[in-house]
Design a protein around this nucleic acid. Structure first.
Lengths: 184, 184
DNA sequence: CGCTCAGGTTAGCGATCATTAACCTCGCGG
DNA sequence: CCGCGAGGTTAATGATCGCTAACCTGAGCG
């Protein structure tokens, strides 16, 4: 298993970035939170931007990969959408910090990484929209995409309000998302 | 009519903050965008933080005030929720930048302003939750609040994806939000 | 044993930040 | 006509930023 130390640092960085924003966290403070101090981070990452890039490209990639695998063996589009919702909710609950950073700080990425993230996200949206349009053929492609974006907004609001215990939140969000998409 | 110049500056600041984050915009750059340069802003605001505070307290206050006035004359909780959704969607479409800044940069507020904003937001959530629980008495208070938060996440996702023209977006979001709340 | 190198350390550099100081220049009321 | 305040300007200040340089240390290994 490779890069355990790097992953550990990235996770700590994610929680700090989530709390105060990428620009709001200094390298020194981030280092201290990792048990080392300041410039030691440069033994693991080329720059602060590179940390953000690896973090966000990684989550976009994992979301897309998981979404693909969970739609592969679905019999109906409704079943596929159910799996997609479950997968996304589960990811968002397990990685609240990443979800927050993902849509707050993507604009601080260097150009190439930002383009990578946008491309992966586009594919992820398309994966959802395809299933939604199969289930509701009356929807025009752009309407399907808009609905998927809004559903993401709903699901990604999780980290802001940790009102319910995870299991209750899981079923509530699943219910709301499927209703909002119009497949329940 | 008072403070036209201040409002003008706040609006420009909102679009800049929305695009690159509060910490990502310098006072010099913000000044230039307002047609003056750098420290001239201190003739209108005490500090950069004060600008953010006035901006966010203002929008929280306007959201709450508008929500209250729009539920006053509703006959049924369903009608009230319909009006709340319409009001919120309308505000979000008219002030996309403010919506973005509101939930991205509230953590950069000075303590007292942050507390003001949180208090106003709590009241706004409660306004929605009260109507929702009247409409669906089976919901426990905390569940109602969680659903309202998720609905806000859905509605506030608007600015990120300007896929549809405003009128189409308006009806799509209204439909999704009411379904998600379980009122449609 | 002795070399290497991964992974730390502190000191410091240049850039940039928010903010202040000092000064200028109108428009306007008495 | 004059004084003054509102609303600009540039220069400068101290703090903080990301990052580099130079150095240290200890584990692994031929």
């Amino acid at each position: 298993m490779a890069g355990t130390r790097r992953d550990e640092i990235l996770q700590i960085a994610a929680t700090l970035f989530a709390r105060r924003g990428y620009h709001g966290v200094s390298v020194a403070e981030l280092g201290k939170a990792c048990g080392m101090s300041g410039p030691a981070l440069y033994k693991h990452f080329a720059s602060k931007e590179a940390m953000l890039a690896e973090m966000l490209v990684g989550t976009s990639d994992e979301l897309l990969r998981g979404g693909r695998s969970r739609t592969r063996d679905a019999k109906t589009p409704e079943e596929a959408l159910g799996h997609l919702v479950d997968w996304h909710v589960d990811f968002a609950l397990r990685h609240r910090a990443l979800i927050v950073v993902q849509d707050r700080d993507w604009s601080s990425l260097p150009d190439d990484a930002r383009e990578q993230v946008r491309s992966l996200q586009r594919k992820y949206v398309e994966l959802w929209a395809r299933q939604l349009r199969t289930s509701r053929p009356a929807l025009k492609p752009v309407e399907a995409r808009a609905r998927v974006h809004a559903a993401f907004g709903l699901l990604n609001s999780t980290p802001h309000s940790a009102l319910l215990p995870d299991s209750a939140m899981r079923s509530t969000l699943r219910d709301m998302a499927l209703r909002a998409l119009g497949v329940a």
